[in-house]
Design a protein around this nucleic acid. Structure first.
Length: 575
RNA sequence: CGGGGUAUAGCGCAGUUUGGUAGCGCGCCUGCCUUGGGAGCAGGAGGCCGCAGGUUCGAAUCCUGCUACCCCGACCA
């Protein structure tokens, strides 16, 4: 295609509203425009990238026996009421009514709809396993859309749903998808890592993994073991209690004045002790109930784990008033001693503490010499904290490393959670009905596009991995007044088209600098510059966007040269 | 949902305090000129100053209400 004819509205300046790099670059390079908060229009370049990602996804889904279908975006409330998620999903769901006041939603996901299909059409175990997938828009009314395509309200997602006769077969489907995902993100040319994850709102009884594209700007924290294959989202990573050497001889409980010391830091300083000697006491409101949560002073509560302990809908810190009512003091002096009316849950490290410090539930006072179990009762001891870098790997004991990641895919083993609620059964070999085992496997297509940029850019613009690039090659004739230059460019363009290379020719009557800047910004992997001087020597210049490397190639050899480069780059990531 | 901010040309912004009918840079159009990293000169197009009320002889500017968008927060006692 010709740049002069393509809608690629590049901008010299970054729109004020774009915060993250992928958003800024996609806006500036003419990939996207915003239509509403969290809702974007995809221009031709973005559309091409989306098609490329989708194609890779399709090929790998099909290779595992997946069958592509399309499911409705507008979904009736009844189905969601049946699964119980009409109420659970809350404000995240776009809801609407038709002219008869019947309720619908814009599908945030499609478990209900697809299960409804299967329960109606699949009767026998002989029809299993059944792997159905779709690549479509999904809708989530995020409480705060941000980061451009990373957290939009309308986004493109691939979801595959697996239906199996039993848990063992379901596990096989899960393994197939896990494998497919490894292949997909490899083929996209991305650096990624699958991690153990929390199942969150989708729930389900089996395991779940998230696929993280590694990027410093990632929203998710992950830990991984440099020695073995263990890797997990910090939300999920299980913590072993780490015993710190504290004075092991228990002493008596002692009330000490700590005026003005309302933070871990202040109390530590005031009493000349260490954060790990303090018991951090937090009052949470879990659904409607207040709960006392204890972790060591140097640790952080993991609200996801806390939520899972209670199977709760909402987990929130209690308000200052609620704390005051319960403990009769300000938040800075809260402690577990004497709190008998509420449930006290403690992280596994807390019972190991001796001579600890905690708030005295009296403004300006703390206790010293506290021994959990002796001075207060713990109702439940569980892993409640967030793991930290350097802690031993739960599998092999080596110190864990941390990284940031962008979640681009997640695989869930759902078990019978949905099929039971929606009554999805088939007849088994024994002639009896059995409930289907399900899995669901999502990939954020538009988010993958954004993640690819977060991982591959420099100050000049995007550096597309070859498999995702909207075009593989751009030809830049330096001067349109030089007939020889134009002729050589057009000839090369025609030849590359014939060879089915995805090529653009920048035939705009612009100065060379403008074309170079745009080429760098959009991020074509290969740029062929054709100028009068090099052409006199019979050469053209090929520049690699990713490395900045430049090669002069004889005109007659350039088609082959480019094809070899493209094939090599594609092959290097398994295409 | 809580707090803060913004809304003026396609993009980035000034003008608002002190009311007098809109400006700068980039981009866009025409011409000349230029051609290996966002050139130069000349001419030009483009704005219901977010929306709706109000005050005033007169409102981008003051007042009221609304809407949209952005940022921060909703995580540590």
């Amino acid at each position: 295609m010709r740049v002069s004819q393509l809608l690629i509205p590049t901008l010299r300046e970054t729109p004020a509203e774009a915060e993250v790099i992928s958003h800024q670059l996609m806006y500036r390079a003419g990939f996207i425009r915003k239509t509403a908060a969290g809702v974007y229009t995809y221009l031709p370049l973005a559309h091409r990238v989306i098609q490329k990602i989708s194609r890779i996804v399709r090929e790998e889904m099909d290779a595992k026996g997946g069958q592509e279908i399309m499911l409705p975006i507008i979904q009736p409330a009844e189905l969601w009421q049946e699964s119980g998620r009409w109420a659970v999903y809350g404000d995240e769901m776009f809801r609407l009514k038709d002219r008869h006041q019947r309720e619908f939603c814009l599908g945030p996901t499609h478990e209900e709809v697809v299960t409804d299909l299967v329960r109606g059409e699949v009767r026998s175990y002989k029809q299993l396993p059944l792997l159905l997938y779709q690549i479509q828009n999904k809708y989530r009314d995020e409480r705060r859309p941000r980061f451009g395509l990373m957290r939009g309200r309308e986004f493109i997602m691939k979801d595959l749903y697996s239906f199996d006769r039993d848990a063992a077969n379901c596990k096989q489907s899960y393994a197939k998808m896990y494998d497919a995902y490894q292949r997909i993100f490899s083929r996209c040319g991305l650096s990624f890592r699958p991690v153990e994850a929390d199942a969150g709102a989708i729930g389900g009884t089996g395991g779940t993994h998230e696929f993280m594209v590694l990027a410093d700007s990632g929203e998710a924290g992950i830990v991984y073991c440099p020695q073995c294959d263990y890797a997990a989202n910090v939300e999920k990573a299980e913590c072993k209690p780490q015993v710190k050497a504290i004075d092991a001889t228990p002493s008596a409980k002692e009330l000490v004045a700590t005026p003005g010391a309302k933070t871990i830091e202040a109390v530590t300083k005031f009493l000349h002790t260490e954060p790990e000697c303090l018991i951090k006491t937090l009052i949470y409101r879990i659904d409607a109930k207040l709960v006392v949560v204890l972790v060591r002073g140097d640790r952080e509560v993991n609200e996801i784990k806390l939520n899972n302990v209670f199977g709760a809908m909402t987990v929130e810190l209690a308000s200052a008033q609620e704390v005051n009512q319960l403990c009769k003091c300000e938040t800075g002096y809260v402690g577990p001693v004497g709190l008998t009316e509420v449930e006290i849950v403690a992280d596994a490290e807390v019972p190991l503490m001796v001579n600890a410090v905690c708030g005295a539930n009296d403004n300006g006072y703390h206790f010293k010499g506290i021994k959990p179990g002796r001075d207060f009762t713990i109702n439940q001891v569980v892993d409640l904290r967030t793991i930290e870098a350097g802690e031993p790997c739960p599998k092999c004991g080596e110190p864990l490393a941390t990284a940031r990641g962008i979640e681009v895919g997640q695989v869930f083993n759902l078990g019978t959670t949905y099929s039971e609620k929606l009554n999805a059964k088939v007849l088994g070999e024994n002639g009896k009905e059995q409930t289907l085992y399900m899995g669901c496997y999502g990939i954020g297509v538009t988010r993958t596009m954004a993640a690819a940029i977060e991982q591959n850019y420099d100050q000049d613009g995007i550096k597309w991995p070859m498999p995702l690039a909207p075009f593989q090659v751009v030809i830049v004739p330096v001067n349109l007044k030089e007939q020889a230059v134009v002729d050589a460019a057009e000839k090369l363009y025609a030849e590359l088209l014939k060879q089915r290379v995805e090529v653009l020719i920048d035939d705009r009557d612009e100065r060379p600098g403008v074309k170079f800047k745009d080429a760098d910004l959009v991020g074509y992997p290969l740029r062929v510059t054709i100028g009068a001087k090099t052409l006199q020597d019979g050469n053209v210049e090929v520049k690699f966007r990713a490395t900045g490397q430049v090669e002069f190639v004889p005109v007659e050899a350039v088609v082959d040269f480019l094809q070899v480069q493209i094939a090599a780059q594609l092959a290097s990531c398994g295409n």
